[in-house]
């Protein structure tokens, strides 16, 4: 058995190196297949990062009337915290709100003067409410609106930003859906092209298969060199597609390029998260590439050779 494996491995390696251009072409096709899958995964990953980042920044601010005392605000906070949709609440006191406002308006003397003229703090406390997911903001806003403490609230800014949040949400989700459909379609096409390429390679060996049969080679002995060849195709292709993907990530990390290709993405995100993630998980990426490449090579070989052995 070991002898058979070694001999067929040697035969597979010989075929791989002696086939020259045919091997290069087949490896090239698998590299393209793997690269297409990688690019799709990178785009989906970038979209995910972006979605998370946007979701992290989205919240609704509940402005409390200026005459409500701090302990009452705390009760209010506690009540809103009980909503199942709420993830957390950030409390900004009246003092803090005024300080923040002054900081934001430090270049606008008119505003600063007006505040001084008013004398007292014109701003109420603010509760920044964060939901588990962006779909829930509408529910939270309407719950606050219908609650017993609604008269203590001067405004909920969600209503103001509602359209912006909704649109962003829709756009990101549509983008995500599109990316998945594109990834599946392109991967499928890549698999078909690889399959066809290996089919052509094996077809060019059909006379050899016939000769092997005639001199008494068992089906396994005929099959194994082609399977090894498939393994070589897959591994070689993976070794090329990994650095190629890294270069691609570096390329789209360039802000000018990214903003023209991926309007929803952000070059900084890609550069920091995607490239870093790629390098941190290099072993995993190489392993995935090899597995997928070898799967493509071997699967196509097995299916094709089966047809020739039957004939």
């Amino acid at each position: 058995m070991l002898c058979k494996v070694t001999r067929t491995f040697k035969a597979g390696a010989q075929n791989f190196f002696r086939n020259g251009w045919l091997s290069i072409a087949t490896v090239g096709v698998i590299v393209i297949a793997l690269f297409i899958v990688n690019v799709q995964i990178a785009i989906m990953f970038a979209n995910n990062l972006l979605l998370n980042a946007v979701e992290d920044r989205v919240n609704i601010s509940v402005y409390v009337n200026t005459d409500v005392q701090e302990d009452e605000v705390m009760k209010l906070r506690h009540e809103i915290e009980q909503y199942p949709e709420v993830e957390n609440i950030e409390y900004i006191s009246r003092k803090q709100a005024l300080a923040d406002f002054k900081e934001r308006s430090k270049n606008n003397e008119t505003i600063l003067k007006s505040i001084e003229e008013v004398g007292s703090n014109p701003l109420g406390a603010v509760l920044n409410v964060k939901a588990h997911n962006p779909d829930q903001y509408e529910t939270i806003a309407s719950k606050i609106d219908q609650s017993s403490f609604s008269e203590k609230v001067s405004g909920v800014n969600y209503l103001k930003y509602r359209d912006i949040i909704d649109n962003l949400n829709k756009e990101i989700k549509a983008n995500q859906k599109g990316a998945i459909i594109l990834a599946v379609t392109l991967s499928f096409i890549a698999i078909l092209i690889t399959f066809n390429s290996i089919r052509t390679t094996i077809y060019s060996h059909r006379q050899e298969i016939e000769i092997m049969k005639l001199i008494g080679a068992s089906n396994n002995y005929i099959r194994l060199p082609f399977i090894w060849e498939g393994v070589f195709y897959g591994i070689t292709a993976a070794m090329i597609s990994v650095p190629l993907t890294y270069l691609y990530l570096q390329f789209i990390g360039n802000e000018e390029v990214t903003n023209s290709i991926l309007p929803l993405s952000n070059a900084r995100f890609i550069k920091i998260f995607l490239t870093e993630y790629f390098m941190k998980n290099l072993v995993l990426v190489v392993l995935f590439q090899c597995t997928f490449g070898v799967f493509l090579g071997v699967f196509s070989s097995i299916i094709t050779i089966r047809k020739h052995l039957k004939a």
């Binding site: 006379q207 050899e208 000769i211 005639l214 001199i215 008494g216």
Partner: peptide, 17 residues
């Protein structure tokens, strides 16, 4: 395959790999 190993075959077109 085992049966074929008992028979040596030679053809007009040689059929070498």
């Amino acid at each position: 395959p085992y049966h074929r190993r008992n028979i040596g075959t030679v053809f007009q077109d040689c059929k070498l790999l």
